[in-house]
Design a protein around this nucleic acid. Structure first.
Length: 450
RNA sequence: GGAAGCGUGGCAGAGCGGCCGAAUGCACUCGCCUUGAAAGCGAGAGUCCCGAGAGGGUCCGGGGGUUCGAAUCCCUCCGCUUCCGCCA
């Protein structure tokens, strides 16, 4: 069986002893506990859990650990006895002890080797098991199975034929897609003049809203991260094809697909005091996505790009509060929509349609007059302890009790799609676009005119 | 990229190949003292894994080696600091 690299760059170059592997991702005991109902839950997202293999791996690993521990314990006793025998001066007894010690060395090595192999197989197995979808989600596997929770604002019915954002952007002279293609290829964008200023204004508005009104701490983080970081939030090892990868010499780095990755991993391998939770973090970063598997979808305009910028919201909370925290986070993303006066609706995604690491996801969909449709603008998810286990984000309560944190994140909001919505919902009969009032202090202008 | 130095528990900082999971100080927890607090005195406390439990094992930057036995010796990788080179 091929052995994948352990979830750390250094370790990948320097494969180590099995016992050094951190205990991450799914807890195999929890997964196997009938009360967890993992088989049924995973089946809802089309994943078949091979219980027999998992049980076998776990039992084999544990017995190897035990054999090694016992041999090592005896080895320690013998080593101490050798010293005593040397001083008492009974060479024969000493020789016998040394011989036994040499023998034990082999036994320990064999048990460790077996442990290492089984541990690697177990890690490999667990790393590819997605999170368990919440029972509160509807059945289904596509966005058409999503269920509407509520709608806000009136989908504006225009008394003239609406343009989509590409036509609007070109007429206004703020969008230049041909030149973007010249520079980098399809699925990139160039914004010009007031378009670029509007993009900057949206980002500033969102950051101010979340830091000042919702209590988020703003960070500036790397957009190029290592393998361990990508594994912590669940992008790796399964979704390498979705990422842009770079590096120099033998150093590999990945471009982040969202600020969720660096923000959540800020506390990887740390133990957080429960009284410091919840943590609420935000960052405005570029996001890079290969969009493999989306050929032909949304090829026009700013909806689906290889590079876009986004203001991301991340919350690190106590595990038992994660469901409530999801509603809090959703309210913050909705506040951004309402602040900009953009008509939208909230839907619950179907169990088979949520991301690998998520257990519950709300999407916010904005009304786009140009398409006469609601389109996804923000995704707000609860990951439970799934990411925290993979990344090693632990908690410690005042009474000393330890556990894993829960993580959540949501777009709050993606700048490009927000700009699309502003153009389309704000368009007037004469081809001009009215800028949302809340943005005017940031733009310095209240409308865009051809 | 070149040269030198350094990586020990939350922090600081000792550490002869076995008596080192590791001195000491600060911080921390719980007592005592006090009207309360501080100071003082006493006690305690790390992590992760296996185990029903008793208990056992792991961890001195990572990995490997020497040895009956490694925080201590050797190799290697990584990181940090300083100097030089390059650079926004």
């Amino acid at each position: 069986m091929p052995r994948p690299p352990p979830p750390e760059g250094e370790a990948a170059r320097n494969p180590g002893r099995a016992r050094r592997y951190p205990r991450v991702m799914h807890d195999p005991r929890v997964l196997l506990d009938p009360a967890t109902d993992a088989v049924r839950k995973l089946a809802r997202r089309g994943f078949t859990l091979d219980v027999a293999s998992l049980e076998k791996l776990l039992a084999g690993r544990n017995s190897a650990i035990q054999r090694g521990d016992e041999a090592r314990a005896e080895s320690k006793r013998v080593a101490t006895a050798v010293k005593g025998a040397g001083r008492e001066g009974d060479p024969q007894e000493r020789d016998a002890l040394v011989a036994r010690a040499r023998e034990l060395k082999g036994i320990v090595a064999a048990a460790e080797e077996e442990h290492r192999e089984l541990e690697a197989e177990l890690q490999d197995f667990l790393l590819s098991v997605p999170n368990l979808p919440s029972d509160d989600l509807p059945d289904g596997a596509s966005d058409e199975d999503a269920v509407q929770v509520r709608a806000w604002g009136e989908p504006r019915q225009l008394d003239f034929p609406p343009l989509d954002h590409v036509d609007l952007g070109e007429k206004l002279g703020i969008l230049d897609l041909p030149r973007a293609t010249k520079l980098a290829g399809p699925r990139f964008a160039v914004l010009r003049g007031k378009g670029a200023a509007l993009e900057r204004a949206i980002a500033r508005y969102l950051l101010d809203l979340h830091t000042e009104r919702h209590g988020y701490l703003e960070w500036s983080v790397p957009t190029l991260v290592n393998r361990a970081t990508m594994t912590g939030t669940g992008q790796l090892p399964k979704f390498e094809q979705d990422l842009f990868k770079t590096g120099v010499a033998d150093r590999e780095l990945y471009l982040i697909p969202t600020a969720e990755v660096p923000l959540t991993n800020l506390h990887a391998k740390e133990t957080l005091a429960v009284e410091d939770l919840p943590l609420a973090y935000t960052a405005h970063t570029p996001c890079f996505r290969s969009e493999a598997g989306s050929y032909g979808r949304d090829t026009r305009g700013l909806i689906r790009l290889h590079e876009f910028s986004k203001v991301e919201l991340v919350r690190v909370v106590e595990a038992e509060h994660s469901r409530d925290e999801l509603e809090v986070l959703l309210s913050h993303a909705e506040a951004a929509m309402q602040g900009l006066g953009l008509a939208y609706r909230v839907v619950k995604l179907a169990a088979g349609d949520i991301g690998f690491s998520a257990e519950f996801t709300y999407d916010i969909e904005v009304w786009l007059p140009g398409q006469q449709k609601y389109r996804e603008i923000s995704s707000v998810s609860n990951f439970g302890t799934f990411q925290a286990r993979r990344a090693g984000i632990r908690t410690k309560a005042k009474d000393g009790r330890r556990g894993f944190a829960a993580t959540l994140n949501g777009s709050g909001l993606p700048v490009g799609r927000t700009l699309v919505a502003i153009l389309e919902q704000g368009q007037q009969a004469d081809g001009s676009v009215r800028i949302p009032e809340a943005l005017v202090p940031y733009t310095g202008f209240a409308e865009l005119t051809p």
